[in-house]
Design a protein around this nucleic acid. Sequence first.
DNA 1: CGGTTACCCTGGATGC
DNA 2: TGCATCCAGGGTAACC
Length: 283
Amino acid sequence: MPELPEVETMVRALKPPLAGARLQRLEILDPRLCHADDPDHLAARLAGARIATVERRGKWVVIALESPAGLIVIQPRMTGGFWLVPPPHPRHTRLIFHVERLDQPIRYCDARRLGKLFWHPDRHALDAACARSQGTDALQISRRELASRLAATSRGIKPALLDQKILAGIGNIYADEILWRSRIHPMRPANQLTPTQLTVLHAAIRPVLETAIAAEGSSFDAGYRTALGREGGFLAQNDVHRRAGLPCHRCGQPIQKAYLPGLIARPTYLCPKCQRLLPGPQS
DNA sequence: CGGTTACCCTGGATGC
DNA sequence: TGCATCCAGGGTAACC
């Protein structure tokens, strides 16, 4: 589930209780999510370590422990999330952080078990892992870097925005919002954007993501909730995602839902009038 | 090499 | 109520 705004919301919730506290024990209930090494070894290595910081890198949650306990990376993927309060589905609990002086432990729950846990011995190793699979964070990337990376691929702009190696943090919801705001069709070849479109696109990323962070992310159905169990409010104020058939906020045309090539089973929402694939009159 | 697809997992919602 | 079907915020290995 979580994209950059949801993961940022998680990190902000985790910082106060975790930063500076001692991790008495990490209880790994589901060894399958542990891609670090042997779960027992990992738990033994972390037991008693003090937590230095909690950070976000793209869609990753990084819990940095004081040396030599290393750094934990959690990728919540589709359905992972943290709970500072009792979770609604206790049987989905995969990790329990027992932290000193907290009333209750912090839980990591993941219904679909697609999420993963990694461990790195030091920041250098984390940086190397990041470099292998993550581009510059979507809130940090410059127009120049975005332009040069997009110029290197002829894929559609939406698949390119979803590619974490190009820039890190954007997922299906916010890609649609960013492209609507930029009036760019999702299948427009990334290397065919005009300089003006690149400027508009780059300028759209930050306000969309920051608005979503301020709303604590996007919730629908029984999916993502904040660590305190609240629903994210972004989908009450967004423009296209999950708005099929509803009028475009700019031109009134009904928003379309489409399944585009290269995006298997991942729906795209767009305004057919504002976001044309071929040159034509814009509303 | 670049681009596309299978597939990983499972629960909740929806439809019959 | 019970059962089948569909859908989902991500990411990567394998394939063409």
